[in-house]
Design a protein around this nucleic acid. Structure first.
Length: 603
DNA sequence: GCCGTTTTCGGCCCGACTGTTTTCAGTCG
């Protein structure tokens, strides 16, 4: 029955709705409007889709905002939608949404989830075959398609009947697996294809674009742009990729294939002289491009992947690079990581974009685990202290902060813990004298226990230059409790860094539900650094929360949390995330020289 | 229905691909 309630979601229970549920509800309103009368409600459809997306991407708890009457503060939510949501929250139903959904079977909102199904196709099939039970609508449709009853319908045919069966298969696979893949893995898949495409004599330039170029934490489809004078021949070559599973689309300008592992790769082509416009178009994001094109329209230009069309003369100007494309509409070039339409276009118009941090600005890693036997309650590193230092040397670092997990408290007395820390000190001192080029900082990663206490006593903490405090258990505590827990953990003078703050593991574990305003406010006031953890499955903090933390004047450290020396190379992913959070060098503490870092740790 | 550094009224991105069509509707990014 859950799905029935989810379909249009007119029932607002006393716990409130998640952002995802509210987002889906508004998306469904747009779908319903499309079915009712697409041209009449054209702009409502756009508005509801925008609102839906805004809520899906928001870091605020929308259901709280609605209760406080503040939903209108979100860009994309105006007085009308906010009013309907408030009514839904107060009365458990909204008369307006009920009116929009009236006469549209719930099954439509189920079928819409199938790839290649939009409002029209879903509604047509539901009506045609009386698919009135949302719980069985997909199965029923499959049976109907198999018994060849769809092909005879007007506007359908043999091919579309077969395509529907294929799409249902994909829908089922998609439901059972994670669709989005991590950035490093996507990079690997993309690079393999880039190497393949570069071998074609028809390819003049090959660039991975889309969310991959914007360095999003997870990637859906892999987008690749190719400059070529022979698009058809190039696409022929592309669709013959040896690891291809099947061709999704094959056109004259662009094509899509599915490769082993179920990943989709889209290739788009343009002649070399228009490649700048293609780079801009295919990098996105969608919202960035829409905003850019609206801006251009007001200036009398129409933008596309082909170039910039002057609406008065009808002439299209071509651009071989992105800088000149942006310049032509009065903007400075915008780093791909910032292209999410969250204010970057306005800043580019005023030439006020921040100078973002670069990997070369990083002077050291403050979160690494060696294999020194600290007898921790969590995992030990794989490599020796010396090996980690050697790696830091090759990365041209100035310093390295060793931060193994705290020794397990269940197996040791406080005296024993102190002894272990002192033993590690000896080892670190020895390593120091053997390698003069890397300065060593004595840290520890300490659990914040469920009650907010730290498992190590003051005497042991005094032996450290500083501590990273992080949550490794009881992730599901109530918002108020977990917020208090973190603040208490951070309150110790030696606690300097909040490690992997949200605790999320991509595709595995969601973020903790904490009051980030309170936490960032505290960190800003008391000079506690917030970690941007580069571990590809963490990328924590993530971009939108970094932006929020910046508002509270929080300082950050970018760390790798390495458990082996080669993992120290993942620093770049943390830097990508920082750039997506609009971070400058001056916001990051581990861009500071050693002495300044030590001053901060002592402060 | 939302929004504003040319607007509180009058706008709202753009093009590719597919299947079913003979000029287009639907879907996607």
């Amino acid at each position: 029955m859950l799905r029935l309630a989810e379909a249009s979601m007119l029932c607002y229970d006393h716990i409130g709705m998640s952002n995802q549920q509210i987002s889906k509800l508004l998306r469904n309103v747009a779908v319903a409007y499309s079915i009712k009368d697409e041209s009449k409600f054209r702009f409502q459809i756009i508005a509801y889709n925008n609102a839906s997306e805004a809520i899906a991407n928001s870091t605020e708890e929308i259901s709280d905002l609605i209760k406080e009457g503040k939903a209108i503060s979100l860009p994309g939510i105006g007085p009308s939608i906010a009013g309907h949501l408030e009514e839904l929250c107060k009365k458990g139903k909204s008369s307006h949404f009920e009116w929009v959904f009236k006469g549209i079977p719930q099954s439509v909102f189920i079928l819409i989830e199938i790839p290649s199904f939009g409002p029209k196709k879903a509604y047509r099939l539901v009506k045609e075959f009386g698919l009135n039970d949302p719980r069985t609508a997909v199965d029923d449709l499959e049976k109907i398609a198999k018994s060849e009853k769809i092909a005879p319908l007007e506007g359908f045919g043999e091919k579309s009947q077969a395509d529907i069966l294929k799409a249902i298969d994909e829908y089922r696979i998609g439901e059972s697996k994670e669709k989005r893949i991590t950035l490093p893995y996507a990079t690997e898949v993309a690079n393999k294809m880039v190497d393949y495409l570069k071998k074609s004599k028809y390819a003049q330039r090959v660039e991975p674009l889309g969310s991959l170029r914007r360095k999003a934490a997870t990637i859906g489809d892999i987008d690749i742009a190719v400059a070529t004078n022979q698009p058809k021949k190039l696409l022929d070559y592309f669709t013959k990729y040896p690891y291809k599973e099947r061709i999704i689309e094959k056109g004259d300008i662009s094509s899509s294939i599915l490769v082993s592992g179920g990943h989709q790769i889209d290739v788009m082509t343009q002649p070399k002289k228009s490649f700048g416009a293609l780079l801009q178009h295919f990098t996105g994001s969608k919202n960035h491009n829409i905003h850019l094109r609206e801006l251009a329209l007001r200036k009398g230009f129409s933008l596309s992947e082909k170039g910039i069309k002057n609406l008065k003369t009808g002439k299209i100007s071509e651009y071989s690079d992105e800088e000149s494309f942006y310049k032509a509409i009065g903007l400075t070039w915008i780093p791909p990581e910032m292209r999410e339409d969250t204010g970057e276009i306005e800043l580019a118009a005023q030439n006020k974009l921040p100078k973002l941090i670069e990997i070369g600005d990083i002077r050291g890693d403050l979160h690494i685990h060696s294999n020194f036997p600290v007898e921790p309650s969590h995992d030990l590193g794989k490599d020796t202290i010396e090996e980690m230092i050697l790696k830091a040397d090759t990365l041209n670092y100035e310093y390295l902060g060793f931060s193994e997990h705290n020794p397990s408290v269940s197996k040791h007395t406080p005296e024993e813990i102190e002894k272990i820390i002192l033993k590690r000190d000896e080892k670190l001192e020895e390593a120091k004298s053997n390698n003069k080029s890397i300065r060593i900082i004595k840290l520890l990663e300490i659990d914040i226990l469920p009650n907010g206490n730290l498992p190590i006593d003051n005497q042991a903490l005094e032996l450290l230059d500083g501590a990273i405090v992080s949550i490794h258990s009881s992730f599901n505590q109530q918002k108020a409790d977990i917020t208090q827990r973190i603040l208490k953990g951070l309150s110790h003078p030696k606690a300097k860094i909040l490690g992997h703050p949200t605790g999320r593991l991509i595709n595995e574990r969601p973020s903790i539900d904490a009051d980030w305003d309170k936490i960032f406010d505290y960190c800003g006031k008391f000079k506690k650094a917030v970690e941007i953890n580069s571990w590809p499955a963490r990328l924590d903090l993530y971009d939108t929360l970094i932006r929020k933390a910046l508002d509270f004047k929080v300082k950050f450290v970018i760390n790798t949390d390495s458990h082996a020396s080669d993992q120290m190379e993942t620093m770049k992913y943390g830097v990508f995330m920082a750039k997506r959070g609009w971070i400058k060098k001056s916001d990051i503490l581990n861009t500071l020289p050693y002495n300044d870092i030590m001053d901060w740790l002592k402060s």
